[in-house]
Design a binder for these strands. Structure first.
Lengths: 191, 191, 191, 191
DNA sequence: GATGAATGAGAATTCATTCAT
DNA sequence: CATGAATGAATTCTCATTCAT
């Protein structure tokens, strides 16, 4: 009678399962995370998990999609809809605190073997880069930014730098320093 | 004499086992790599592995050490013993072809949970950074390089950028582009 | 009126479910047949199956009953209502094509462990034999058949032979040959 | 140093596992037999089972081979090396007592879905029939048997009858009667 | 030292069955 | 009555690790 509720409930539970699984995968890694634990944490039965995800790998793929989506959104909040860049950089620092950080490198590692996942990451990365290019072009046209580097080069550098600094953070390197370096690089590239 | 030979043999076999394991871990990832496969490939018995490594995790640690060591050496070849920087950058491109790339991100992911491993990576990264700082300082003092950025900042940027571009490569992004970006960044930072 | 329709509908659906299940059990065997598949094929919900059958075993019993019933009917068409035996043998050949063949041996195997099922098969077999005895006696009394073998012996032989030839068919042995042998045996026993 | 012992030990254990599994499969059927139970009964670990058989199905195949082999041997003892047929028939009765009987119909049922198994049964059946043909031809040539039926027809009838009577036995029909019918049929065909 | 057969804890996955709607 | 989402017991199979030879 009310399929919408059911449909929305399905969607909500699926999201919840992904979130819980993401936490688990971040904390313990892919192998050490047991399907049972995810189920228990989510307060559903083991079998229920399999109503929403074909198998563990499928769940990991769902997590990856979410994680990559989040990353893209993060870049959007930094580079989109902003006149003033530097002020947006605090957001960057927040992302650093995110546990998603950890699982991301697991996703990268897995991507080297899983072409579907690799494709997914590739596409998103392309989109992020395009978005940054567009942003930089806009700022350049307004005369706010230097024009000595191609926009594309800048975009590549920023994305790569971002990932590299995330590794720093995982290794416990000083976050203030990471943040400072990020800002310095941006200044160097833009002004 | 005999003991010496045995000792050296021990060391050689250990290295060989690490190399073989590294290949396997890169190809299949940590859990999908079976101890038996490594043993078979190395033409030793399963039990023999345990004469050289306490357990699978210990073997992974050994691989990590080797991988990190290699990375450090790679940076050394680029930044050390060189008057001319740009010419050393071709080496960078070669490293991109290395399968070690893949296992590195598995190591990073694992580091987020394993403090010993994290410590190891942390120390090596520090050393790499120190080495780059030293190099940059030297070049600056000779008047070869600009002085607008702190050497430390430059070092951080380079290391992070390097890692980020490795991710690009894993995802199948155009290597020429990666290489070009790397060189552009270096020029921007240094000249 | 309404209840009657419902009652008849209940009966029809039950029969349909048995038929569908029979097909599945024949194709995939008892355990590889999933309740869900039967439900899906029948276009009813899983839960509905349990309104008609207590559980999977109960469904199997129902199938067995039907299968055994069919077998009995098959023998009836051959041996009952017939003056002329040989002409009835074509029917035998047709039965050979029946997929029920396959499930029958699953039923026999299960019978060796399930006394209720065994009892069922036993009773039906007895009835078939009695029917054949009656038929043979009738034909003997009319002078149409030889009297050198007891009717009971003949009945036993025919039933056993029939089952044995069904195995031949399952194994892919030549059907013409199976049919020929069946006819030769009958001639030998009767004329 | 003494590979023969090891080899023979391997072979012995394999046989033992097959025998134990055969008993289990006969008692409980394919699905209800748990790998763990077989292992426990054999006093080995679960994993050991998988050193000898790839999986449950492979174990079932091994059992089938053994079972079919035994059946062939049984026919050999009846029809081979014998001048006097009737005296060999007692052996037939003994086979009736064999628990292998039960698993045989499970094998037949499975054969209807598994072509490799079907092929196996088919080949053995062919061999049994050929053997009987050879025997009957020999006896005919000596003038001991009637010649009104083709040897091939006789062989087919005997094999099918044998299987049919095994079903009788499983269903709990009187063994004396089964045995009597078997002997009567033989007399009818041969003398 | 080296071996590899044996172990058994451990995990993923399935599916008959239930029951709230 | 019918449904089908949720359950969780049950089972197969894997693989790191041990240890007798």
């Amino acid at each position: 009678m009310c399929p919408k509720i059911t449909e929305s409930h399905r969607h909500d539970l699926r999201q919840r399962l992904i979130d819980i699984a993401l936490t688990s995968f971040s904390k313990y890694g892919y192998d050490k995370t047991r399907m049972e634990d995810i189920a228990t944490t989510a307060d559903v039965a083991k079998g229920t998990l399999y109503l929403y995800f074909k198998n563990k790998e499928d769940l990991f793929t769902a997590i990856s999609e979410r994680n990559i989506e989040k990353l893209k959104n993060h870049f959007i909040t930094i580079f989109n809809n902003k006149e003033e860049l530097i002020s947006g950089l605090e957001t960057f620092y927040k992302q650093f605190k995110n546990p998603d950080n950890k699982v991301f490198f697991e996703i990268v590692a897995e991507s080297s073997r899983n072409s579907k996942l690799r494709q997914l990451l590739y596409e998103h990365r392309k989109k992020i880069i395009e978005m940054i290019i567009k942003y930089v072009d806009l700022q350049k046209s307004k005369g706010f930014l230097k024009k000595d580097l191609q926009s594309k080069t800048i975009a590549y550098i920023l994305v790569a730098q971002y990932d590299g600094l995330r590794i720093n953070r995982i290794l416990g390197m000083n976050d203030e320093e990471n943040n400072r370096v990020w800002i310095e690089l941006i200044k160097k590239l833009f002004y």
